[in-house]
């Protein structure tokens, strides 16, 4: 295997139904419902998904939700801001753990 991630694998997502079609149906029905317009618009949901895709660093999801965000009327400026939100939370999550470092430091040092 020359690489773990191949673009041509993305359309094979639905093959995950093989082995457990019932669970796949539940997953895909729920997944579809999640992205329908509700209190949030489809565009807002696509941008959240794009941000999360970056946070979980999923190449399939980044590909899919860049396309989806564009198709829902977002532009590069909005998508870039979404990526910054994801990056800020990831960076902030590291930084806030510094409090633990300081707690341990306080306990162990004079």
């Amino acid at each position: 295997m020359e690489t773990y991630y191949k673009p041509e694998d993305l359309p094979k997502f639905s093959k995950m139904s093989e082995g457990s079609p019932e669970l796949w149906k539940k997953f895909s029905d729920w997944y579809g419902a999640v992205f329908q317009a509700g209190a949030l618009s489809e565009r807002e949901k696509a941008l959240i998904a794009l941000a999360v895709a970056h946070a979980v660093q999923c190449p399939y999801c980044i590909d899919a939700y860049t396309q989806e965000s564009l198709s829902k009327g977002a532009d590069l400026e909005q998508m870039t801001e979404a990526v910054h939100v994801a990056s800020a939370i990831r960076g902030g999550a590291s930084m806030v753990h510094g409090v633990q470092m300081k707690n341990v430091n306080s306990k162990l040092t004079m």
Binding site: R43, L70, S71, K72, G73
Partner: peptide, 12 residues
């Protein structure tokens, strides 16, 4: 669309 994608919902 300004690229290779489909348009969003017209109403939204």
């Amino acid at each position: 669309p300004v690229g290779a994608f489909l348009p969003p919902s017209q109403e939204g």
